[in-house]
Design a binder for these strands. Structure first.
Length: 740
DNA sequence: TACGATAAACTTTTT
DNA sequence: GTTTATCGTA
């Protein structure tokens, strides 16, 4: 079958037809880049390139599967020989085959963030350091950033950090575990140091493509360079304006300086947008033009006009959420937009809570993408820990988990003793045998451990002749795990049992996709991304962080919580100016997800950490906001207040909860603060963000944030020349100069 | 040793 | 407002 290039625009077509040498495709949001990549792969194959010689790196497994599917449909042939994967999956597969070069076992475990943290905790405790002063999370981030820098032998700066770093590596090595960063690091190490291996891969992959190149980090760029042979047939596709992963080491210079790294690069710019209305694009262009670190680019579309963009000023986060739900209902019903064509985007995960509550109250089906991953749920991790100790008999982390659920009477004390043996370098089986024979435990502990060892041996035997799904079913039965869940917490048992059901059926499905061993399943479960978990065809409203929305598009998009301190978030505001640029790119990504309808909103009061805080509206809204607002032309623009009868509102008769609710509502209202007043006359004054106040010592300043209420209310004021000061309103006798 | 109650910390964003 | 750490008790 002939690949049809006629439907491509000239730039797209040129990108497809340029198959030799380095190629940079600058692909603006919605400019059809997935289409370019898939067509290009089909075109290559049509030119006689074997699918075996093609490698394409995508950002998520979902994107990879979609591409494979499209190519399979387009060419009407099996795509099994094509390598389209994510960086991490590629490396995991590589290492399962090649890790022998580094004198290591191929049965390694892939540790996720939780495992890493608990490993670091143990290490820090082992060094007799105080966990308060040396938080595991901090070092996890630090080491991860370090490993992604591209220098394979990078060391942390300070002596104490180095000690923790080395102890961590030693511990990981003893457990034969790799973290996400190790996957890339060790792959680069092998390819760099072993020429025989490198040439094998270089000879195989004649054509390499990388999607979302703006979000690759130094080590990923390095990996690509190691895989490339002298022909440099590399095509990267990306958009510097959508670079949003700087914090995990993504280096925007990879794409900005691509032509420097690869002399002779041909560049094609895709600026025609096939997704959004002109109105949305104008807004997006205006937003992103404020950034310095970019090459000029302007998206355009053949469709003119479009619906106006709504910017909503909400009183509280609850109002914001409720108005979003009501808009969804209205648009869904009157415009027949399917529910899965709605997305609500936010900066941080915690913001989803209000939304979820409101969607449940209105009984609108939704799915939350991201947050707690399916494979991170307690019941799933419990069961996977049994699988992991079978696959990798050195995984102490999973061993401690498995032996503790359901509890067997082996606690910290006994585990310490067992660890003493394990730490001598034995694997789990040997360790258990020795502890039992040497009677290192006694009484109940010994009996429990013996039973556990026997069960362990059975699991190992079963792994050889049962499919993953049957294997796990056996384990669940044997543990009487469902009963355990019931006993733990009857309320959540049903939900958790459903998850286990889902896990089993996922395993069955994957068996069809040739994931037939426990080890393959482990890799799969460790490397799923948020987007991979999204159901795209079920009628549910989507909620996710903007990071998780990368690459997706929807008819109607709500971007909520646009408040300084939340989006852009506080860290970005205090860190450095580049951070604000990255936040702005993030906002740009959010805006360009929308095809037809875009709603932006912020709330004057928001519940965070259990207290009410108040932030000024986001700086991203300021400049372009007004000129785009046009309340008359869109009936959905007006906030839907007063509310229709609330579904699920409190019933009569429950007096105490009614009183509590009234008190809450009173507390939500603007708080009256007593500022002392003049001549003994106490005059309560309201204070809000945006007010200008005078302080006896600091002079005049603008209120940028308020926290709490009443006696405990604190006010953050920006005093020009002095800086930001956070004051307890009751104590600092502020005089209001301007009322916002 | 397990489990409850209470205190403290916690919020960027993810493979 | 939620999760995690620690302490005290059965």
């Amino acid at each position: 079958m002939k690949v049809n290039l006629d439907e491509l625009n000239p730039q797209q077509r040129a990108a497809v037809e340029t198959t030799e040498g380095p190629l940079l495709v600058v692909a603006g949001a919605g400019s059809g880049k997935t289409r370019v990549i898939t067509t290009r792969i089909m075109y290559l194959m049509e030119q006689g390139v074997s699918p075996y010689q093609i490698l394409a790196m995508t950002f998520t497994n979902k994107a990879a599967m979609e591409m494979k599917h499209r190519i399979g449909v387009g060419l009407k042939r099996n795509t099994g020989d094509l390598t389209i994967t994510t960086f991490h999956s590629f490396c995991a597969r590589f290492l399962r085959k090649e890790i022998g070069y580094l004198d290591r076992e191929p049965g390694f475990a892939i540790f996720d963030t939780q495992d890493q943290t608990s490993c670091l905790k143990r290490v820090i405790r082992g060094l007799d350091l105080d966990e308060k002063n040396f938080p595991a999370r901090h070092f996890r981030n630090k080491f991860s950033y370090l490993k992604n820098k591209g220098d394979l032998d990078a060391e942390p700066e300070f002596e104490i950090e180095q000690r923790i770093f080395h102890a961590y590596r030693k511990e990981m090595r003893e457990q034969n575990a790799l973290d996400f960063d190790d996957l890339l690091l060790l792959t680069c190490k092998i390819l760099g140091e072993y020429e025989e291996c490198r040439t094998r891969y270089q000879r195989r992959f004649q054509f390499i493509m990388v999607d979302e190149y703006q979000d690759t980090n130094k080590i990923q760029a390095r990996l690509i360079r190691l895989l490339l042979n002298e022909k440099n047939n590399l095509c990267v596709v990306g958009d510097e304006d959508q670079s949003i992963y700087g914090w995990r080491g993504a280096d925007i210079h990879n794409i900005l300086d691509f032509e420097l790294h690869y002399p002779g690069t041909r560049v094609f710019k895709l600026e025609q947008n096939y997704r959004s209305s002109q109105r949305i694009l104008d807004y997006a262009n205006e937003v992103i033009s404020l950034n310095q670190l970019r090459k000029p680019k302007k998206l355009w579309t053949e469709d003119s006009g479009g619906l106006p963009i709504s910017i909503r000023d909400e009183y509280s986060s609850m109002d914001e959420a409720e108005n979003i739900v009501q808009s969804v209902i209205q648009i869904h019903e009157s415009k027949k937009v399917p529910l899965n064509e709605f997305a609500i985007l936010f900066r941080s995960n915690f913001l989803s809570r209000v939304l979820e509550e409101m969607f449940r109250r209105y009984q609108i089906p939704y799915q939350l993408i991201g947050g707690l991953k399916f494979y991170d749920r307690k019941e799933i991790k419990d069961l996977l820990s049994y699988m992991r100790i079978v696959v990798n008999p050195r995984d102490w982390t999973s061993f401690t988990r498995a032996i503790g659920v359901p509890s067997r009477g082996i606690g910290v004390k006994s585990l310490d003793k067992i660890y003493g043996v394990f730490n001598e370098g034995f694997n789990l089986k040997e360790t258990m045998d020795m502890v039992i024979e040497g009677k290192i435990l006694s009484g109940k502990g010994l009996r429990s451990l013996t039973a556990f060892r026997d069960f362990y041996n059975t699991m190992v035997e079963n792994a050889e002749d049962l499919t993953p799904c049957d294997w796990l079913t056996h384990v669940i039965d044997e543990l009487d795990y469902l009963n355990y869940l019931e006993k733990q917490d009857a309320g959540s048992a049903e939900y958790r049992a459903d998850n286990i059901e889902e896990l089993l059926s996922a395993m069955k499905d994957l068996e069809k996709q040739s994931i037939t061993t426990l080890s393959q399943f482990m890799d799969f479960s460790a490397l799923v991304s948020d987007q991979d978990e999204m159901e795209d065809n079920s009628p549910k409203v989507n909620m996710m962080t903007i990071h998780a929305a990368k690459g997706l598009e929807f008819d109607t998009v709500f971007v909520m919580a646009l408040e300084d301190g939340i989006f852009p978030n506080q860290r970005a505001l205090t860190d450095n100016p580049n951070a604000v640029e990255e936040e702005r790119r993030l906002f740009y990504v959010a805006v360009t997800r929308a095809r037809k309808r875009l709603y932006l909103s912020y709330a004057r009061k928001r519940q965070t950490f259990g207290t009410t805080t108040s932030n000024p509206k986001s700086r991203f809204l300021l400049a372009p906001g007004e000129s785009f607002e046009d309340e008359e032309s869109d009936p959905f623009l007006k906030p839907v207040r007063p509310k229709a009868a609330r579904p699920g509102a409190r019933k009569f008769g429950d007096l105490s909860s009614q009183i509590k609710r009234m008190q809450e509502q009173l507390a939500e209202k603007d708080v009256d603060v007593d500022f002392g007043g003049v001549g003994g006359k106490k005059k309560p004054t309201r204070i809000r963000t945006g007010d200008v106040v005078r302080h006896a010592k600091f002079g005049q300043g603008t209120v940028s944030k308020t926290t709490g209420s009443g006696e405990k209310m604190t006010v953050t004021v920006y005093f020009p020349g002095v800086g930001k000061k956070t004051l307890v309103a009751r104590v600092a006798k502020l005089e209001k100069v301007f009322d916002n």
